[in-house]
Measured scan of single mutants.
Amino acid sequence: MAEQVALSRTQVCGILREELFQGDAFHQSDTHIFIIMGASGDLAKKKIYPTIWWLFRDGLLPENTFIVGYARSRLTVADIRKQSEPFFKATPEEKLKLEDFFARNSYVAGQYDDAASYQRLNSHMNALHLGSQANRLFYLALPPTVYEAVTKNIHESCMSQIGWNRIIVEKPFGRDLQSSDRLSNHISSLFREDQIYRIDHYLGKEMVQNLMVLRFANRIFGPIWNRDNIACVILTFKEPFGTEGRGGYFDEFGIIRDVMQNHLLQMLCLVAMEKPASTNSDDVRDEKVKVLKCISEVQANNVVLGQYVGNPDGEGEATKGYLDDPTVPRGSTTATFAAVVLYVENERWDGVPFILRCGKALNERKAEVRLQFHDVAGDIFHQQCKRNELVIRVQPNEAVYTKMMTKKPGMFFNPEESELDLTYGNRYKNVKLPDAYERLILDVFCGSQMHFVRSDELREAWRIFTPLLHQIELEKPKPIPYIYGSRGPTEADELMKRVGFQYEGTYKWVNP
């Protein structure tokens, strides 16, 4: 592979701008107003304001973009700056750019259920340069409990009458099928589907988006991507930290609602779906819905739930269990780990287990898709061969690698495990991989909904998990304890083995 010439960040961002501006969906010269509902909250200060700053800094926003914060707290732009700027990672050389960014910011205080507050917000936006005809993007960085009041008031008082209007809704989209349907029906009564952007930030990850290209742009994968060759698929999300004093919020939802029903299920769809007619948003989402419709409700015998306990040999936070978090209700049975087996009941995947695993306070930070292939028929190497695996590593250190057998150097035919490896950090030294939120917010500006969740996708996802969630809430089974920093409950490994996964433990990928 030829040595790549190092590029400056300015040059890299210039390439990104060229890609972005050559499309006809990006209205570079139009006025846009980006409204952050819930501007005083954690999500706004840690993710949304920093993301908008990065896009502005790199010249990736339309030229005439204004940012308006809205929340109940009586704040000023200076207050917003004070709480969000520490997350910007701005350099001293960017000081003038930073001043320009905050000059485009404003803030309006108001209630979430008060019509007069929204009329005041609308008047404020109209007073901005060309504000009355601007395109408006409303980001709901809010708890779902206020979605209905907020969307109703936005629709009645704050819509642009000339430009387009788009609304970005953060997960969780309800707690179960019934609450999700209620919320979807409410929002759909106010906005068209092409105006609604239900954001799952995992769909903005580079390697998640790469799944489609790997599958449908490489001839070698087509013939082997089926039940005849693939023994099982494992989708993993692991965090090495616990709730760390923020367990009160987590306890309301648990690990299945927080990660599995959305992030992991979306990745499953991209692995299992048929080739779409095109890369058009609805063509892709149509195929994802077909996959979900082929999955039956989760069966309790295919589920393992766990909850982390303190590690007596650990240090600091590792010595504390979930129930030691003062914000967690006493005696909570909320799971911090889950392993679930699903089956896609169609011709391509009949009988292939899709194993979804996620948890907190585990032994490493990792998100990946792992396809394990069947054993080689007619073994001539005296059971020395391990199964081939194709691994798409989402985070950290984005990579695609194939675990395969090669001859060990020497005189004899002794096979050993090795890999074919594409590590993004080595291959793409001159490429700026956008943060997931950067990519998705740019998608909203461009009107691309491919990486957002459609209402029928959402409904099918909740259909699969709601009976299990209701059973857990009714019966309150005690989750299996696992030690902070471990791989999780051993019962999860036993479940995976029972459905056909072979864990060798003899080879570990190392970032080159």
Results as ranks from 00 to 15, higher is better:
170 E>S: 03
16 L>K: 13
139 Y>Q: 06
58 D>P: 00
180 S>F: 06
237 F>T: 12
74 R>D: 15
72 R>A: 02
171 K>F: 01
233 V>S: 01
71 A>Y: 10
103 A>D: 14
60 L>V: 10
128 L>C: 12
76 T>M: 09
87 F>Y: 13
125 M>E: 01
153 N>A: 09
173 F>T: 04
208 V>Q: 04
15 I>P: 07
157 S>F: 14
179 S>Q: 05
235 L>Q: 04
112 Y>M: 04
26 F>R: 14
143 P>R: 00
82 K>T: 13
85 E>P: 02
1 M>I: 10
11 Q>V: 15
89 K>N: 15
71 A>P: 01
194 D>L: 10
218 N>V: 01
220 I>F: 10
222 G>Y: 06
243 T>E: 03
219 R>M: 05
47 K>D: 00
29 S>L: 11
161 Q>F: 12
235 L>T: 06
74 R>Y: 15
102 F>C: 07
53 W>E: 05
184 S>R: 06
224 I>L: 11
15 I>V: 10
113 D>C: 13
248 G>T: 12
12 V>M: 05
56 F>N: 04
78 A>N: 10
22 Q>L: 07
154 I>W: 03
214 L>R: 00
194 D>S: 12
81 R>H: 06
25 A>Y: 15
101 F>Q: 00
237 F>H: 09
215 R>I: 03
224 I>V: 06
62 P>D: 07
252 E>D: 13
90 A>L: 09
61 L>V: 13
90 A>V: 12
179 S>L: 06
130 L>R: 07
166 R>P: 02
178 Q>I: 13
193 E>C: 02
137 L>V: 13
7 L>M: 15
113 D>T: 14
14 G>H: 13
123 S>F: 11
216 F>V: 01
120 R>N: 14
29 S>E: 14
213 V>E: 06
108 V>W: 04
256 I>D: 00
56 F>G: 02
185 N>W: 09
128 L>V: 14
123 S>W: 13
150 V>Q: 03
232 C>R: 05
112 Y>N: 02
110 G>L: 04
62 P>S: 08
239 E>S: 01
235 L>H: 03
172 P>T: 00
51 T>V: 11
143 P>L: 05
39 A>V: 05
52 I>W: 04
19 E>P: 14
148 E>N: 07
141 A>Y: 03
214 L>H: 09
167 I>Y: 07
168 I>A: 09
130 L>S: 10
149 A>S: 15
166 R>G: 08
164 W>Q: 06
78 A>S: 11
180 S>E: 05
155 H>Q: 15
6 A>P: 07
63 E>Q: 12
163 G>C: 13
7 L>R: 14
227 R>N: 11
47 K>Y: 07
46 K>N: 04
172 P>R: 00
67 I>Q: 00
58 D>F: 14
153 N>C: 13
136 R>K: 05
170 E>L: 03
210 N>P: 02
30 D>A: 05
103 A>F: 12
49 Y>R: 01
254 G>Y: 02
205 K>I: 00
114 D>K: 12
230 I>G: 04
155 H>L: 10
146 V>L: 15
77 V>W: 15
229 N>D: 07
117 S>C: 09
120 R>I: 15
98 L>W: 07
125 M>Q: 13
254 G>A: 07
248 G>K: 04
151 T>S: 09
125 M>K: 01
157 S>Q: 12
217 A>C: 11
95 K>N: 05
145 T>L: 05
139 Y>V: 02
118 Y>W: 12
24 D>N: 13
12 V>F: 15
60 L>H: 06
116 A>D: 13
172 P>L: 02
59 G>C: 10
36 I>A: 06
82 K>C: 10
132 S>H: 12
242 G>N: 05
137 L>E: 03
173 F>D: 03
31 T>Y: 09
256 I>W: 02
197 Y>Q: 02
132 S>I: 07
67 I>V: 13
189 S>V: 06
63 E>F: 11
148 E>F: 13
62 P>K: 08
32 H>Y: 15
29 S>F: 15
64 N>I: 05
133 Q>P: 15
212 M>L: 13
158 C>F: 08
112 Y>T: 05
137 L>M: 11
225 W>A: 00
223 P>C: 07
233 V>W: 02
91 T>R: 13
239 E>F: 02
14 G>S: 15
59 G>Q: 08
198 R>A: 02
89 K>D: 12
114 D>M: 08
137 L>S: 06
153 N>I: 09
9 R>I: 15
108 V>F: 13
128 L>H: 15
47 K>M: 06
186 H>W: 06
200 D>Q: 00
240 P>Y: 13
246 R>P: 00
203 L>Y: 04
255 I>M: 07
219 R>D: 06
53 W>M: 01
212 M>K: 02
205 K>W: 03
143 P>F: 02
32 H>I: 14
20 L>E: 07
166 R>N: 04
36 I>Y: 01
92 P>E: 08
91 T>D: 09
15 I>A: 08
184 S>D: 09
184 S>T: 15
106 S>Y: 09
96 L>K: 07
230 I>C: 10
80 I>M: 14
31 T>F: 13
103 A>T: 12
26 F>Y: 13
64 N>C: 09
12 V>I: 15
110 G>R: 03
110 G>T: 03
75 L>W: 14
117 S>A: 15
183 L>S: 09
83 Q>I: 08
79 D>K: 09
232 C>I: 03
6 A>R: 15
109 A>L: 06
104 R>H: 14
84 S>W: 06
36 I>Q: 00
167 I>H: 08
132 S>R: 11
164 W>I: 06
177 L>T: 06
223 P>V: 06
54 W>R: 11
177 L>F: 08
105 N>W: 09
81 R>A: 12
226 N>E: 06
206 E>G: 06
124 H>T: 15
138 F>L: 06
202 Y>P: 01
67 I>D: 01
94 E>R: 02
155 H>Y: 13
156 E>N: 11
130 L>A: 10
86 P>F: 08
251 D>N: 12
182 R>L: 15
25 A>Q: 15
210 N>F: 03
134 A>D: 15
58 D>K: 11
36 I>M: 03
36 I>D: 01
148 E>G: 11
198 R>Q: 03
72 R>C: 02
64 N>D: 11
50 P>S: 07
26 F>I: 06
19 E>A: 14
58 D>T: 12
169 V>H: 06
132 S>M: 14
254 G>N: 11
148 E>T: 07
39 A>P: 05
199 I>R: 02
192 R>N: 09
168 I>K: 05
208 V>C: 14
206 E>K: 04
229 N>Y: 05
42 D>F: 03
201 H>N: 03
143 P>A: 10
155 H>M: 14
238 K>L: 01
36 I>R: 02
103 A>S: 07
222 G>P: 13
229 N>H: 10
91 T>L: 09
80 I>T: 03
46 K>R: 11
156 E>I: 12
87 F>M: 14
